[in-house]
Amino acid sequence: MLSIEVNSLSKKFGKFLAVDNVSFNVNKGEVFGFLGANGAGKSTTIRMLCGILEPTSGDAKVGGFSVMNEPDKVKQKIGYMSQKFSLYNDLTVEENINFYGGVYGLFGEKLNERKKWVLKISDLKGKENLITASLPGGIKQRLALGTAVIHNPAIVFLDEPTSGVDPIARRQFWELINDISDRGTTVLVTTHYLEEAEFCNNIILINAGKLIAHGTPATLKKDYLKNKIIEIECDDPVSAMNILSKEPFVDDTSIFGNNIHLSVNEIYNSKTQISDSIKTNNKINIKRIDPIVPTLEDVFIHLLEKGK
């Protein structure tokens, strides 16, 4: 069952085409990753899908309603959490929950029941009277997500929700996202961290307003990255990187501690090309050259560089 259907959606600001004929579908209850560089059109698309920005052309159905013709009905179906965690810092935990409950029309027994749930997922039971500003980042983040879904929306939009949160808090947050999607809420999430995109069931990548890739993490790695990724361990990796980056068989280079990662194109045929190239500087001793499994970051850098 589809939760979001986007059909040829476009948005122009003056002459600038921010979103260019984008179409994709999101299944009910899935965790859907929406990726792209800054300025690629992510926020513009999300604002249209939330019914707060009118498309120039095309349409999208969100929770069964058209964003073009029924934006107010769309708003009742969704929750939204931004990277700034839209909580009121000078209110207590409970006041924030009551405020969002009120905004979404909850009261009485229903509000109490959902309040209990929000307190539980954010580990704040018994701490209702703490001032929100005093909470650690990870707790605040879960409270923000709890308030964004306090009305049990069909769909929740998370815009870079994990910016600046530590590894342990981030993992707890993703477990919570999985729980929410298990209960049938569709989660659409944007992130700059490609390792997080691995947690998504399906992903799209947009660049300069256009959709350039769509699939599961595994199919993206298989179908979109024609290049191989090679890891080289050697002395003086920075000098070796600078030599290799001039080779026609190398599209991109990157340093990982004492290792270099190369993205090599179809001109590449064997390790000797690499060792011959590095040997032009006889001070560099090569320890090993091995192909490795590409990351989603490798795939996306490749697609974005190609698109330039």
């Binding site: 700059h192 280079t253 996306f300 560089e305």
Partner: peptide, 12 residues
Amino acid sequence: GVDPVSRRDFWK
């Protein structure tokens, strides 16, 4: 808060 392409540039 920096996107992946800029980040890779930064590391270089």
